[in-house]
């Protein structure tokens, strides 16, 4: 096909013009870049981060550049320093973030249209926010099971993004440590106790905190149909605060 003068170039919907936000740090040095950025109204996308849980620095969506270093830093685990210039948004960072998100989508079976949290999903929202309209990498089509053995909740591994919020909330807030992660790499997956069905877990208190903090439809309440489930992780900072108060 020869090109024609009147035809504009392909409209690209996968890139949005990026603005570069620079954050200059002066003052406190005991807070993360993410915290300071958000205090200053600068948005940095996150997935494994959740207010009230220990940080992991694992999803890498919050990567930022620090002036003078060629490396990328996860904003959620990097402490600010005096005179640090942080670039929270640039074409390069945007590009990496979108690709990372594409990798997440390519890993398991994230079919929004038949998901219980369709419309209320952090992963789905991230795709909109980062302008990810499609996944250029091949889908890995990993086969995972659904664990519906719990009387009130169910776990669909196919929708899990391994953010490990469930493990952290169960271990650090509830104190049960029912969840952990078995295997490693691409074969890693969430397990309860000695890899027993959730419903047969001996340590699960059934508190449902894991369900509320799960960013996707991996953990959900039973009886909810497509798009009927919403999560409310807002209880976490409150709970954390109250627990601190209660300490002697």
């Amino acid at each position: 096909m020869t090109s024609n003068a009147s035809i504009p170039p392909k409209p690209r919907t996968d890139v949005n013009p990026a603005r570069i936000y620079t954050l200059r740090i002066n003052g406190r040095e005991d807070e993360t870049i993410l915290t300071v950025a958000r205090q200053n109204g600068i948005d940095i996308p996150t997935l494994c981060h959740l207010d009230g849980l220990a940080e992991r620095g694992a999803c890498r969506l919050c990567i930022v550049e620090i002036q003078g270093s060629p490396k990328l830093y996860a904003a959620c685990v990097t402490l600010v320093k005096q005179d640090m210039d942080v670039i929270t948004d640039s074409p390069r960072i945007r590009d990496y973030r979108r690709k990372i998100l594409e990798l997440i989508f390519s890993e398991r079976n994230h079919v929004c249209s038949v998901c219980v949290v369709n419309g209320n999903c952090e992963l789905q929202n991230l795709a909109v926010k980062l302008g990810m309209t499609h996944v250029r990498y091949g889908y890995l089509n990993l086969t995972h099971a659904v664990d519906a053995s719990h009387p009130r909740f169910s776990l669909d591994h196919n929708r899990c993004v391994l953010c490990l919020r469930c493990i952290r909330v169960c271990k650090d807030i509830e104190g049960a440590h029912t969840w952990d992660i078995a295997g490693r790499g691409i074969h890693a997956r969430i397990i309860s106790d000695l890899n027993q069905p959730w419903g047969e877990s001996e340590t699960c208190t059934g508190c449902g905190k894991c369900v509320q903090v799960c960013p996707t439809g991996a953990l959900s309440e039973k009886g909810k149909s497509v798009a009927e489930m919403t999560k409310r992780p807002e209880f976490l900072p409150y709970l954390q605060m109250m627990r601190k108060e209660a300490e002697p």
């Binding site: 409209p11 690209r12 919907t13 994230h110 929004c112 249209s113 369709n118 929202n125 909109v128 302008g131």
Partner: peptide, 18 residues
């Protein structure tokens, strides 16, 4: 409309998966 008007469509906030 965008195609008819020869411009880039503005899909921000209009589409999502699902």
């Amino acid at each position: 409309s965008a195609l008819l008007e020869d411009r880039l469509p503005d899909l921000a906030g209009r589409v999502r998966f699902g």
